[in-house]
Design a protein around this nucleic acid. Sequence first.
DNA 1: TCAAAAGTGTTGTTTGTACACCCATGT
DNA 2: ACATGGGTGTACAAACAACACTTTTGA
Lengths: 225, 225
Amino acid sequence: METLSLPPQATQVGLAVDVAAFAMHAGELRVLLVQRGELPHARTWALPGGFVQVGEALHEAALRELGTETTVKLEPRHLEQFYTFGEVNRDPRGRIVSVAHLAVLPHGTVEVAGGGHTLGAAWFPAHTPPTLAFDHAAILDRAIKRLQLRLEYANLALEFLPDTFTLPELQGVYEAILNRPLDKRNFRKRLLAQSILVASGERRSGVGRPAQLYRRAKGTRTAAL
Amino acid sequence: METLSLPPQATQVGLAVDVAAFAMHAGELRVLLVQRGELPHARTWALPGGFVQVGEALHEAALRELGTETTVKLEPRHLEQFYTFGEVNRDPRGRIVSVAHLAVLPHGTVEVAGGGHTLGAAWFPAHTPPTLAFDHAAILDRAIKRLQLRLEYANLALEFLPDTFTLPELQGVYEAILNRPLDKRNFRKRLLAQSILVASGERRSGVGRPAQLYRRAKGTRTAAL
DNA sequence: TCAAAAGTGTTGTTTGTACACCCATGT
DNA sequence: ACATGGGTGTACAAACAACACTTTTGA
């Protein structure tokens, strides 16, 4: 297929991916950050990311960066590109355009460690992140907005939880992402009306009254736009 | 600012923009296409597009391509990127990633002619386009979906019309974009309830009963997400 | 028996949708 | 007078928002 050649001006702009990967920890929405080990912005926190390889699809590059910049293998339940950041001076190394991705990691994804070019990796509160390198604060901002949008109509909240979960847990995910409290009765009414949840009959022991366990009904996984 | 250098693997992927530019003609939603003058896909129709230059923002590249691939200067009322297409084999010349943009051209933008590398430019029905080069059919498809989404909550329909317009004209824009008829009474109720339209008192002569003219209320232009 | 968390209904408001006739003008 | 397109209101259904007490368990 390489019968025609790329014109020279086609290869002067660098193409990267950055990934805003979210998970729930301690009832809070957290985002995965890596501490840069190289200039520019050495020692500051940043979204995991890197350059797209020639034979690699964009989502593959995003997955690879999630895997190599952190030691533990991460298997996102959801991955979608949401915006492409191309300001001319967003990176001091030259003209680099970044296709930003949103990832959702399932419950239990806790241990992460730096790998590759990074000094470390850790989870941070998504709504109150530390100072970030490059334009990553803007990228994170937009990622959260997209996540909030998706929540409303693509059952994305379930991807944060294990296979079985209680309604209060699910409501906690919604509240953590939307960053505001929700009414318990209206929440239950709305969710159950969608009939994407089925009670698994069991109950989970805890401090107060045990909660009904639910799981997602078969065939109700909605594809991302 | 060029104190740090781009790593070599950063420059192996070509970055382009493609633009789906829409306008209303004869009560129909039309999209601007150019006929390619070069391989690959010589003589087939395609969305206007081309490579991003080093010192150029993405939206500037989109505007430039709109201007150089057509002779008449086009001044879009709305321009936003909506998705980045990066399939590995989408272009036989090599690895080229395209940031796709959606543009809305105002009423009266009729004459276009080929320029640059193209054999010609013309408007085509957006819902029934001819065979398109590369993956441009998929890009156009997604552009129309985005346009339909925007319509619902970003008053984008007004950008297709001149400063003053009648409600039946506005309804025609909605129907052309959504590709389905709307109820006249409900449409008027909904639009007037938003109070973004003010009657300009005048009337326009035509065949039947004259229609009330409206214009957009000041300060009601909503920024694109 | 107390603390802690789960569960449950009703009411009013807003939003959306279906639907048919009269009005103002030009010919 | 008639043809052409513009303009108007109501009734039902669905979705959404506010709001407080009872139930089940473990300690």
